[in-house]
């Protein structure tokens, strides 16, 4: 399982109501249902992912997050998740606001564009970075709003969003040892964290 997903599980309370925006094929939701007995709902736009969720017995709604969450009422979920999707939405600030309206707590994970490798790539080659984790060319990518750890925290400060927990990771895949944050990740998260995981509230 992806490291950001392993990390965020610790913040999900058993038997709570969880909304997973951009839930993909439902791997995370299914795990949370099995391990934490949550009552979960996924939101997804990809047809095959939706069928995969249905085959796992999950509840999933076909909906475009960019069009808002107006069909969800205030405080109707304990936790709202947005994993590896913030960079792909049209208005990240708007999505964040909506998430915090609908959920009491939110968990957001995203690739950190401030990571040294990204900076190095751009500095040396002078082109938009393409890597295993960001495999798209600039002109044909779902990722239209990359941000850094610093950018995200600035946005939180502007919107009065409280950061309850933060962790950064070297990679989303690999062994358990790989995903444990190192001392330098904690001191310089924006430089040494390839992926960020935030637990926030209003």
């Amino acid at each position: 399982m992806r490291h950001d997903l392993i990390a965020l599980k610790q913040w999900i309370q058993p038997y709570s109501r969880v909304l997973d925006l951009g839930c993909g094929n439902g791997t995370l939701l299914k795990d949370l249902v099995d391990e934490k007995y949550i009552s979960g709902l996924g939101v997804e736009i990809d047809a095959e992912n939706i069928t995969a969720c249905v085959s796992k017995g999950l509840n999933v709604i076909e909906q475009d997050i960019d069009k808002g969450l107006s069909n969800f009422s205030d405080d109707s979920f304990d936790t709202v998740l947005l994993t590896q999707t913030l960079q792909a939405v049209r208005r990240p600030d708007f999505v964040l606001q909506e998430m915090l309206r609908v959920g009491k707590e939110c968990i957001i994970t995203f690739p950190n564009f401030g990571h040294w490798q990204v900076r190095w790539y751009l500095l040396l080659r002078g082109k938009m970075p393409v890597s295993k984790m960001m495999p798209y060319d600039w002109y044909d990518t779902p990722n239209i709003h990359f941000c850094t750890v610093k950018d995200f925290e600035n946005l939180c400060a502007e919107q009065g969003i409280k950061i309850m927990h933060r962790t950064v990771q070297m990679s989303l895949v690999g062994t358990e040892k790989d995903h444990r944050p190192k001392w330098y990740n904690k001191i310089w998260p924006n430089l040494f964290g390839a992926h960020a995981v935030y637990h926030v509230t209003r």
Binding site: R17, S39, L41, A47, I50, C53, V54, L58, N59, V60, I61, E62, Q63, N71, F72, S73, S76
Partner: peptide, 19 residues
Amino acid sequence: SEDIVQALIGAERAVTYVE
């Protein structure tokens, strides 16, 4: 159909919706 889905979500009922 979205009206139905919205009401079901509001009532906290298990629902799957596809268009």
